[in-house]
């Protein structure tokens, strides 16, 4: 059996050889050791805001909504006019910026993650169904997707926000139901290709039912692009949220989000740049972290890339 030499060569000698362990056999510790640097950076960049968001009430030095006109527009540490107690300075109403950033992390991350979860699960379901099932289910679902795509999403968001009361939950709902179409299209396209592969035909031949094929065979194989799309969407959603907050349709004061902070500081860009720059940086680094984390996750879930190095 000459062809098996490649495999048995890794474990030489003894009765029960210990060959290079495959992905699923490795311990969690050795899996962690294989996390690349970019994965660690991503983990930190996402982990810090996430932990901060969870423990927000414990970490805030001041109340994020407490107004004090006598302490307005104080600069952050290291600049002239810095006052101890306000590490990152204050905004135009004298509210502590650090406390506001911490409180804003909660809503911004919640909106980003939950709306992507909503959009992703609708999109995944529709995409799988449209790609796998009969032609007319595909046609029906995809024409609906086309119709949705034909309406500019910002217009759709404005209409829905005009009907529903603005606020965090409305925002999550709106961003979720306007973003699922990109998932649906991408996943349908991949399913169309995968469904012709012989392993799907083999499963059908064994009598495996449609839903089981969707779950067991198709879903794991569309996961890489699903993860990439999701991480990209978290980024866009956080940015869209700031745009909507700017229009007054997003998060409503006294709730705080990074997007809202970004827009309140715009009048003071020339004199007190930190009011919008700091939440801007927070958004940038979090989004970067999510992208890096997604990249690593995609590779880690692929047995072809995870083994043999």
């Amino acid at each position: 059996m000459a062809e098996s030499t490649t495999m048995s060569a890794s474990g030489t000698g003894s009765v029960e050889p210990a060959p290079a362990k495959s992905f699923s056999q490795r311990s969690w510790r050795s899996k962690l050791r294989r996390v690349p640097l970019s994965g660690w950076i991503g983990l930190v960049l996402v982990g810090v805001p996430a932990v901060v968001a969870i423990f927000a009430p414990l970490l805030m030095p001041h109340s994020p909504t407490e107004i004090d006109p006598t302490r307005a527009l104080l600069p952050p540490i290291g600049m002239e006019g810095y006052q101890p107690g306000h590490l990152l300075g204050t905004d135009n109403l004298g509210r502590d910026l650090l406390s506001r950033l911490i409180e804003g992390a909660r809503i911004s991350l919640l909106i980003g993650v939950l709306s992507v979860v909503l959009a992703g699960s609708i999109g995944l379901t529709v995409g799988l169904a449209a790609g796998y099932y009969s032609k007319w289910i595909d046609a029906l679902l995809m024409r609906f997707v086309d119709a949705l795509l034909a309406i500019p999403s910002i217009l759709l968001i404005l209409v829905i926000l005009g009907v529903l009361d603005p606020g965090m939950w409305t925002l999550i709902f709106v961003l979720g139901i306007t973003n699922w179409v990109i998932y649906a299209r991408q996943i349908r396209a991949e399913v169309l290709e995968l469904r012709e592969r012989q392993f799907i035909r083999a499963a059908q031949n064994f009598g495996v039912s449609g839903p089981t094929i969707l779950l067991r065979h198709l879903t794991p194989n569309v996961m890489p692009s699903f993860i990439v799309l999701s991480t990209l969407s978290v980024a866009t959603v956080i940015v869209t949220e700031s745009g909507l907050s700017f229009l007054g349709l997003g998060v409503q004061p006294p709730d705080i989000s990074w997007g809202l902070m970004l827009t309140t500081g715009r009048d003071y860009l020339a004199t007190a740049w930190w009011i919008s720059t700091l939440p801007g940086l927070a958004i940038t680094f979090t989004v970067l972290g999510i992208l890096l984390l997604g990249d690593w996750l995609r590779d880690a879930l692929d047995p072809r890339l995870a083994v043999g190095r």
Partner: peptide, 17 residues
């Protein structure tokens, strides 16, 4: 009847042990 396919690369799901 069961079938053995031509291409052993596409007839096994790459994400299953």
């Amino acid at each position: 009847a069961q079938i053995v396919f031509q291409d052993p690369y596409s007839s096994l799901n790459p994400r299953m042990p």
